[in-house]
């Protein structure tokens, strides 16, 4: 660097290290850090996305706690708990899949990804059963809604939010299964190694995020005001 503060030009534009990274990055490390930061920033947008729904839920729940409490009694706690455990389990297998990729264990990646997808599909199956059950009980908000409680108007609001929140969550699960399918194919082809595992790491972050949303949905929808 020259003393008058002028920039000096160093060679570096075209010369890349041997490690695999896209041409506009200087190193695989820079690429990995960028991907990870990008994923986290994306998850921030996801959190704010669900945030609007959480806000609506908080506002209406605090306005009509009795109606919401009565409505939440129509949800099946056993199924909710089961699904919570399933999803936590899928987070564990997902974390182990990422770990296997970090260690370059191709077969383990495949096994753990398949396990994660089975658990995810189980969750969705149970959710579909619950939705079906609600439809049979005429608890779908809208014109066919029937609720024999003190305040059917606001019980309907509970189910509005229930379907909006769990529906959006389920949609994220479905997208997640799609992403994991891609990861499975990449993993089976041995694309991941200790030097390159960005995609599966970012998919893992997404999957855990969806798990966290459920960790909050479960008590909010199923558990509050459940006693008595």
């Amino acid at each position: 660097m020259s003393p008058d503060g002028h920039a000096t030009a160093v060679h570096g534009g075209g010369a890349h290290a041997a490690a695999a990274h896209a041409g506009h990055f200087d190193s695989a490390e820079q690429q990995r850090e960028s991907a990870s930061l990008g994923m986290w920033v994306f998850l921030v947008t996801e959190l704010m996305f669900f945030g609007g729904l959480f806000l609506a839920y908080i506002v209406y729940r605090s306005a009509w706690p009795e109606a919401f409490g009565a409505a939440s009694h129509h949800l099946d706690v056993r199924l909710g708990t089961f699904n919570t455990i399933v999803l936590i389990g899928s987070s564990l297998t997902m974390a182990l899949a990422v770990r296997s990729a970090q260690l370059g264990r191709r077969q383990a990646v495949v096994i753990f990804l398949v396990l994660t997808m089975i658990l995810g599909a189980t969750f969705l199956g149970v959710k579909a059963y619950e939705y079906h059950h609600k439809a049979v009980e005429h608890l779908l908000p809208g014109h066919g809604f029937q609720f024999e409680g003190a305040d059917p108007r606001h019980a309907s609001m509970f189910f509005c939010l229930y379907f909006a929140m769990t529906g959006l969550h389920a949609l994220h699960m479905i997208v997640g299964l799609g992403i994991l399918t891609v990861m499975l194919i990449m993993g089976a082809r041995g694309r991941f190694s200790a030097a390159y595992y960005n995609p599966i790491e970012c998919s893992g972050l997404y999957w855990h995020f969806v798990d966290i949303i459920w960790i909050f949905l479960f008590p909010l929808l199923y558990l509050l005001e459940r006693h008595g």
């Binding site: 704010m48 996305f49 945030g51 729904l53 609506a56 908000p141 509005c160």
Partner: peptide
């Protein structure tokens, strides 16, 4: 990043209200 998702979900809720006749 922090704002746009909130209006996105708001638009979704308006859409849901229009499509399914629910009353958020």
């Amino acid at each position: 990043i922090l704002g746009t998702p909130v209006v996105a979900v708001t638009i979704l809720l308006v859409g849901a209200e229009r499509l399914f006749g629910v009353g958020i």
